[in-house]
Design a protein around this nucleic acid. Structure first.
Lengths: 303, 303
DNA sequence: ATAAATTGTCTCCAATTGGTGGACAATTAC
DNA sequence: GTAATTGTCCACCAATTGGAGACAATTTAT
C-alpha cells in the first residue's frame, strides 16, 4: 500500500530493464518487486509493463506514468533535502562502499575523525573492490580509484577526493645483488612485483622527469607476484624478492625504516585519482556533501 | 514509512491548523497523526511544526517543505489519474456521502444502474444530513441539496446533478373542510406541514406564474409538524392534517392515487439544486466523472 | 531439437509495521 | 482556580509486508 515505494520500485524496474535486474536497485527480492508492480497496476487499473519472459517493455500508460514517476521521485528527494538542509547539521546514515585497500589504509582514521566532527551521522561502510554502481547497490556514495578517465554518466556525479601516487621500491640487498636500474628498460631484466589495480600489471609506464622530462616509457615486466594486497608487496620487496610497483603509502613505512629504497626516482608513475561517486539526485545531499568536503580536507593535509 | 502518507498527514495538519483538527482529514487518530509527523521530522532531521499546546505553527523548514508537499501530492494524484484514465473503464471504490432523504429516494435505483454500467467500480455510500466537507470526511464525492447559492471554495468543485421541485399538497377532505387557498396569504390561516430542509420552514416563499407572473410572496405559516422525513409529510397530508410543503417526489405517489391534490398550482416554490461536491484534486478523476455524468443522465430522464 | 538456465509469478510463513485507545504533562480559557 | 483541550507516549492488536522456494513459460546454448 506504500505508494511511494510502489513508484520507486516501478521506476527501478523500468530503469534496470527487468524485474530481476531491478532487485539490487530496489533492495528487495524478485517476489517483492513483482508484488509492488502488481499492486500498483491493480490500483491504477492499467497494465504498466509488458512482460515477455525475457524482456520488459512499457505500455503506453507505463511510459506516461514513468515520466511522472521519475519527476516526482526527484522532487521528493529534492524537497526532503531542502528541508533537511535547514537543520544545519547533516544527520542520518551514510552508506559508503569503498575498495578494500583504500578503506583499510585510510578510512579508519578518516571516518573516525569524520564521525567526531559530525555527531548526528552514522556510517555503514561496505568493502568491495568491484566498480560498484552506487545506485544499484543502494549506496549514498562509492569511493573509486580511477586509473584513467572517469566514465561519463547522466545519473552519477563525482568529486575527486585526492590523488594517489605510486612508486617503485626494492630492498638494498636485492639492488646490491642484481644492480640498481638507471633506465626504465632495465626493469625488464628484474623480478617485478606488480600491483593488481593497474591498467596492465605486466606493462609498466614510466614518465621521465628532470632531463628526460615528459618522455614516456612502456616496459614489459615479469615477476612472480601480482597482488592486490599492498602489504604483501611491501613485505616481499623488503625481503628482497624484487622491485615492487605499488601505491606510495604502502612503502612509506618500509622506506622510513630503511627496509626498502625507491628505485628510478627520476621517473614518475601514472597517478591515480580517488573519486567519490554518488547519484546525481544526492548531489546536494548534506550527508554526501559533508563527507566529500571532509575527505578532501582530510587528504589535503595528508598526501 | 510511506513518504507520501507522511507528507499527506503533515499537509493535513498544516491545513487544518492542528493535530486534532487534522484527524478527519487524515483519517486517523491523533496518535497516528502525531506519529507520522514525528517520523517525518525525524527522517528529515528538522522540526517542521512549532507546537505550542494551543496552536500549531510552521517553522521555516516547515513552510518550505509544505509548499513542496502540496505540489508533489497534487502531482502524484494527477499522475495516477493520468495513468488510470488510459485504462478506459473507471475502477476502484467511490466513497460517497449523501443526505439521507435523497439517498433513500433516488440512490437505490441510481446506484444500482450505475454499478451495472461500471463493473469495476465499488461504492461506499454514507448517509449524513450535515453539510459534510468531502475532504475532511475522506470522501471522493458529497451530494448536497443547495437551497440558495453554492458556497465558493478553492479546494472544492461542484457539478449540478439535477434540480428538485417542491409543491404544496393537501388531502381533498382537508380542503373540503377548511377551504382551498387561492392566494398565498391564505396559507397563514391553515395547518401547515413543513419540511425541515428549507431556508426557513416557518416562512414559505411562493412566486406567481400565469397572470401574477414573477411576483414573490412570503407567507408566515404555522403548523404542528416540521419534519425532515418526506414520507411523514406525505402521510400526514393524506390523513388531512394540513397543507404540506415538500419535495415533489414524496407526493407523486399520493397524488396519483388521489390521496392528496396540489394546492396553489399557479405558484412556484423555490427550486433546489442537487450538487455533487468533490475535491478539485479529483476534478478529472475517472470515478468521479463517471458518477456525475451518469447521475446527470439518470436524472435528466426522471425529473 | 533438446536441455539448461533464466524469466516473472504464485503460495505460504514469519516478522515487522501501523493504528487505536487510554493515560499523561502542559497549557489555555473561563 | 478549575476544567477542558492540546500533543505525546505506551502497549496491545491486527494487517501487511518481504522472503524463500516452487512453478510454468520462454529463451539461449549446445
Amino acid at each position: 500500500m506504500d505508494r511511494f515505494e510502489q513508484m520507486r520500485v516501478f521506476a527501478s524496474v523500468v530503469e534496470a530493464g527487468g524485474f530481476t535486474r531491478a532487485m539490487p536497485r530496489a533492495g528487495m527480492s524478485r517476489a517483492a518487486v513483482s508484488k509492488h508492480v502488481l499492486q500498483l497496476e491493480e490500483r491504477l487499473g492499467v497494465r504498466l509493463l509488458n512482460r515477455t519472459t525475457r524482456q520488459v517493455g512499457m505500455t503506453e500508460a507505463g511510459r506516461i506514468f514513468y515520466e511522472q514517476c521519475r519527476r516526482i521521485l526527484d522532487e521528493v528527494a529534492s524537497a526532503e533535502q531542502g528541508a533537511a538542509q535547514i537543520s544545519g547539521e547533516p544527520h542520518g546514515e551514510l552508506r559508503v562502499v569503498a575498495p578494500t585497500n583504500f578503506a583499510l589504509t585510510y578510512l579508519g582514521d578518516a571516518i573516525t575523525e569524520f564521525l567526531l566532527a559530525y555527531h548526528d551521522l552514522k556510517i555503514d561502510l561496505s568493502l568491495n573492490d568491484r566498480a560498484v554502481d552506487p545506485i544499484d547497490g543502494g549506496y549514498d556514495l562509492a569511493i573509486r580509484v580511477i586509473n584513467s578517465a572517469l566514465p561519463d554518466s547522466a545519473s552519477l556525479a563525482a568529486t575527486r577526493l585526492t590523488t594517489s601516487s605510486r612508486i617503485l621500491c626494492a630492498s638494498p640487498a636485492y639492488l646490491l645483488e642484481h644492480g640498481t636500474p638507471r633506465q626504465p628498460q632495465e626493469l625488464s631484466k628484474h623480478q617485478c612485483l606488480s600491483y593488481s589495480y593497474v591498467d596492465d600489471p605486466r606493462s609498466w609506464r614510466l614518465k621521465g622527469k628532470g632531463q628526460e622530462k615528459g618522455k614516456e616509457h612502456v616496459v614489459s615486466v615479469s615477476g612472480r607476484i601480482i597482488t592486490s594486497a599492498g602489504q604483501v608487496l611491501s613485505t616481499a620487496a623488503a625481503a628482497g624478492l624484487g622491485i615492487a610497483y605499488g601505491p606510495t603509502v604502502f612503502f612509506q613505512d618500509a622506506i622510513a625504516r630503511g627496509k626498502v629504497v625507491q628505485v628510478l626516482p627520476d621517473y614518475d608513475l601514472p597517478q591515480v585519482s580517488i573519486y567519490a561517486i554518488y547519484p546525481v539526485s544526492r548531489h546536494r545531499s548534506p550527508k554526501v556533501t559533508a563527507f566529500t568536503g571532509f575527505m578532501q580536507k582530510f587528504f589535503a593535509g595528508k598526501l
